[in-house]
Design a binder for these strands. Structure first.
Lengths: 211, 211, 211, 211
DNA sequence: AATGAATGAGGGTTCATTCAT
DNA sequence: TATGAATGAACCCTCATTCAT
């Protein structure tokens, strides 16, 4: 992710009889792994734990993933917004940006949405600094998000009466991502932080960014 | 830390002959550990690896630390600005804030200053979501930083001709921390990010924050 | 045990297909552990050694026991006569007591019956003075044995024409246990001790005890 | 020991200026070791612990003992009655035997006399079954005790009006040792055992032995 | 004579991975 | 497809022993 995390995900469910089951099993494993990773971190979560959470045997996992590393990478991939970042494309006004951020913030605070977990974002980013393959996944997603986000910023700026070059918009997108990921850090370090109090300030900052 | 990491640290070096050696050994271990943690993460780095990096036997480490956990905590503690956050107290103008951020950003990019490592900040924060003791260390430092940072924001705002209540300043401090930590994320995810291009934008945002 | 060690034990072997294998593995581990403990003592025997003796990998042991301590305790438990001390209940005459003692003595001398090993009794008793949990196991078995042994003493005494209160019988039981455990010490310290020569004397002592 | 433990020990204290200090250091180490062994067993007590108890550095111990094993052996040696077993030679009547046993029993119960510790006797005996050198020490002491004890039994028997061959007396000595060591077991396993209640019974048994 | 820092082998234990079933 | 028993390398940590001082 970056400024936005995945929301749709499946689509296929009872469709193809061929690899349908395999896909479902993979998803089951990834769901379990995600929960475990959030609870204990990539290294702290054991295959046995993941298997138990997925209610299957450890051996079976290896039919769908060659190694624990692959699960980590798949989780990272899945955790980041997939193909095209439709969420970004739906952002049209300054308020949309702010709303989206606050929404993420709230979900992080509640810690109930495994696919939007703040600690996981941090762990994943830290891991990217060590694992080239993960870095590549993260960066490629970031690039995609950044592209759509830049366009969205252009849109929202125009709405505010400002015209931004794509390059200028891109820089703003970077700052927005900073704010977004910074919030993820804050929410972990200070879970009692008030979203309501923060909102007007964020709105002000974003407005400044658009002008 | 958060919005600032330690910079001074030593001072005593060849002073007391008594515990001097012990202190030096502890530092040697922590230095090695820090490098290893950056390279492989808290859990990925083994005591053997740390020992080898510190050029000592694994057993010796246990003369200075009771357990690996203690090293992690010491690293976290050391990595965060200690007692009173003097760096924050030196921030007086809007430009100071911006300069400090860019400076951190550059040091993160260069990756040559182990005590100012972006990935470590992320890992440490992620770990705080799982280890209560680390969370406490992080939060207590954050509280101290936040206090001094709020006052600094008040100062800088007054300089800009704005008067802020302590509460209002505190909220601004939170946003500044978000930007700061968000930059740490960005620098890991996109090491080629240009500081120079970012600076005017950051200045603008901070200005908005102060007004 | 004390005045008597377990003799029956199994019964189920090829019974339940469910936990049958697990039970067999546990037994295999305990058998190996017992041999190792006899050879090297509780602390001198390493898990690796036990695993090698059981012809399995060290890791596998932990599927059946959570820790080495648990094995020690299981060994202690298994080594002591279980539930009700049926052996004691079969003692009816003075000669039975003497016979039982000599039989134990002989088995100790031969050192071929791991479940009746003199050195293990001593080690186990010494360990009980340091490990509260082991002490509890030992004492609870001792209590059970003592109860049945007291009744047996009453029986045997009546056979000799003496009527003993339960309390009086209990004291005699204690002395019998002393003799029994004292023999275990002797057999270790002086393996060449002649059972045949000892027997008449023991008989005489026991007779005095019953009168 | 066996039927009796050492009581005298020193004699030399400020005598020879030559090896006097060395002897005192050895004694200091052995005193500390004994306490540690009682607390934690031969294997559970570490050299560091012994050194700390002796208030010296671990390194210094190795000036007086080549290895931990040697300390164990020295402790075993010291714990057993030295030179001729004078205690045995002072036993003249049936009552003397009983008194001596009860006295040992009481000291064991109090656990305050490090040189008369029941658990240590057991541990030491168990160790003898594994360490040939310790076995030899134990056996040679046992032989010495047994000799003196046999004579003492003859003496006491004559007092009772019975004449015993040395061989017959020797067998009685063995049984007395069994009772003695058996009491050591009992005292560990059941510390609440009443000495007073046991005494008449022991007296009766010993009387039977002498007749 | 004495210290205690330093070593490194080996301890108990975990866990990613494999494999017979 | 699925299990879960089994492996063994590697983990954290301890401790007998050595050695520079």
């Amino acid at each position: 992710m970056s400024f936005g995390t995945r929301q749709a995900q499946q689509g296929a469910r009872a469709a193809q009889p061929a690899h349908a089951r395999a896909e479902r099993q993979r998803a089951r494993i990834l769901d379990a792994a995600e929960r475990c990773f959030i609870e204990r971190g990539f290294h702290g979560a054991s295959m046995a734990h993941i298997a138990a959470t997925a209610r299957m045997s450890p051996g079976l996992i290896y039919r769908y993933f060659n190694a624990k590393n692959e699960i980590v990478r798949a989780i990272v991939e899945r955790h980041l917004e997939t193909d095209g970042c439709p969420a970004m494309q739906r952002l049209n006004t300054r308020e949309d940006f702010c709303a989206r951020m606050m929404e993420a913030f709230e979900r992080w605070r509640r810690r109930d949405n495994p696919s939007m977990n703040a600690a996981l974002i941090l762990e994943l980013t830290a891991e990217a600094s060590r694992d080239a393959e993960i870095l590549e996944i993260v960066r490629s997603k970031d690039r995609a998000v950044s592209k759509d986000l830049s366009v969205a910023v252009q849109r929202a700026a125009r709405e505010e009466g400002t015209s931004l070059s794509l390059e200028a918009a891109h820089l703003r997108a970077v700052v927005l991502q900073c704010l977004f990921e910074g919030l993820a850090c804050r929410v972990v370090r200070n879970p009692s932080l008030s979203a309501a109090a923060l909102r007007p300030l964020l709105d002000k900052v974003i407005a400044a960014l658009m002008s």
